[in-house]
Design a protein around this nucleic acid. Structure first.
Length: 480
DNA sequence: TGTTTTTTACT
DNA sequence: GTAAAAAAC
């Protein structure tokens, strides 16, 4: 009896999984496999936080497969070689997978597909990660969209993505299982245990994903349009890492949100659903852009920015990474990132603006740090976000749009609860001085136990001066 | 999903 | 003199 392989990648779930269903429908035994091959991911192999997540997500997937009478075979090394070897070992001549859209992965998968087909394999890939394929949507001129609003209108005008298929209730296992690596042998977990904050914050795996979405739909969706900007509240769904690893698919999110809105028939909920799905649209936009403009992971989409006078400022970058810039909201965000592997999106925009515009550090430096530290590090979203912040990407914030970290703190963390949580050395200060401690009187600082330059740094730069410096640099770019 | 400065409207 | 709106960056 011939067997089929299901090659799991960024689709670590059993529901809404077209590759898995295709393998089952082939009517023969099926072998689920995961291949650890970071060297095939070009300049962007998974970072430290992603590896931590992946370890636990694979544990969860393996457990779910076992509960349905199957298992997960883990291999490492060259993917083509491993799949072929596995094919010989379990007499498989077919492999199914769900597509990824990162440049190095597309290139690898394309080569792999033709190599296996040449050897007589049945090879088929599916869309499990997006609402629409990047080739499905284009402007009237036949070009990829580069502006979000018309892109999203085109998505909404398109026929809806299919309802997701439920997970199968049993999986046809092979008579004998091929050899598998121990998950521990992949060494995805950190050598020194820095992950306690992550364990406390997350439950990797599709069960955690579904729980997060359910509790958001029950308790958070209605207030999403305003609370999504409040890092001091639980105003967002926090499903980004689950979406990245495909523990839940965007089609399921889309349909569950719509179903709830239709069932409840309330205008506020309709608006909230629209607002939330729009963010799913940004994720979609990022993936489509990366597919069409693969070099943007490292180079600005707008070519004139190649001449921008960035500076590498190692000491200032280190201060930024450690949450020691002297701007409380920036530092709170960077410490939340370091501790939990995640940062609220409003704060991501603020810290990115600070690095790129106040410090004039190249956006790629920030993108690298996020790549290593975020549990939701996603090449498409990370690239879009950093190019947006730097003003050099598609539909970007204009370069002169510079966030004022104090004002952002006062507006979006009005009571200072977010800053107090992540920058405890300032916790005795009251707003508005909490957001700008250098303007507090010596008596007030002493009262709060704050000694600037000792217990908390002076501002790394003066924001007003830094803003002018950035605008001047941008003027120079416009003239050339 | 920006901030700052200038202009305008109104008291 | 103040605040809202508009313009500029």
């Amino acid at each position: 009896m011939k067997s089929s392989l299901v090659w799991f990648r960024h689709d670590l779930r059993l529901d809404d999984n077209p590759a898995l269903l295709a393998a089952i429908e082939r009517g023969e035994s099926m072998v689920p496999v995961f291949v650890w091959s970071p060297e095939e991911e070009g300049k962007w192999p998974p970072g430290s936080a992603s590896r931590w997540w992946l370890h636990h997500s694979l544990t969860s997937l393996r457990q779910q497969l076992r509960s349905l009478g199957s298992d997960l075979v883990i291999r490492r090394g060259n993917t083509l070689a491993e799949l072929q070897r596995l094919g010989e070992e379990c007499r498989a001549d077919a492999v199914f997978w769900n597509r990824r859209y990162e440049p190095a992965i597309v290139e690898r998968d394309t080569a792999l597909k033709s190599a296996l087909r040449q050897r007589g394999w049945t090879v088929q890939s599916f869309n499990g990660q997006l609402l629409f394929e990047p080739t499905q949507l284009q402007t009237r001129g036949g070009q990829p969209f580069q502006v979000f609003t018309p892109f999203w209108k085109a998505c909404l005008a398109h026929s809806e993505p299919n309802e997701p298929e439920p997970a199968p209730d049993r999986l046809p296992a092979p008579k004998t299982w091929p050899q598998s690596e121990q998950l521990e042998a992949l060494r995805l977990l950190p050598k020194i245990d820095w992950a306690s904050g992550m364990r406390a914050a997350w439950q990797p795996g599709s069960e955690g994903a579904v729980q997060r979405l359910q509790s958001f739909l029950e308790a958070g969706l209605e207030t999403y349009p305003t609370d999504r900007d409040r890092p001091d509240r639980v105003g967002v769904s926090s499903i980004s890492p689950h979406l990245h690893f495909g523990e839940i698919g965007p089609r399921r999110v889309w349909h569950e949100v719509k179903r709830l809105a239709v069932r409840e028939k309330r205008a506020t909920l309709d608006r909230a659903a629209e607002s939330y799905l729009r963010e799913l649209g940004w994720r979609e936009f990022g993936h489509h852009l990366l597919y069409h403009f693969p070099r943007t992971t490292d180079a600005p989409l707008r070519a004139e920015f190649a001449a921008f006078p960035w500076y590498d400022r190692p000491n200032e970058v280190t201060a930024w990474q450690r949450g020691q810039t002297g701007y409380p909201l920036v530092d709170a965000g960077m410490r939340q990132l370091w501790t939990t592997g995640w940062m609220h999106n409003r704060v991501r925009m603020v810290v990115a603006s600070f690095l790129v515009k106040d410090l004039l550090v190249p956006w790629q430096t920030g993108a690298r740090w996020f790549w290593d530290t975020l549990v939701d590090a996603d090449l498409a979203n990370n690239t879009l976000g950093w190019q947006w912040s730097a003003g050099c990407g598609a539909d970007s914030a204009p370069f002169f749009r510079i966030f004022n970290p104090v004002m952002q703190g006062e507006r979006f963390d009005p009571l200072g609860e977010y800053v107090r949580r992540w920058v405890p050395e300032l916790s005795q200060l009251v707003v508005p001085w909490l957001h700008r401690p250098w303007t507090a009187s010596p008596a007030m600082l002493a009262e709060a136990g704050v000694e600037l330059g000792k217990t908390y740094p002076f501002p790394l730069v003066d924001h007003a001066e830094a803003r002018h410096r950035a605008l001047t640099a941008f003027e120079g770019l416009k003239r050339t």
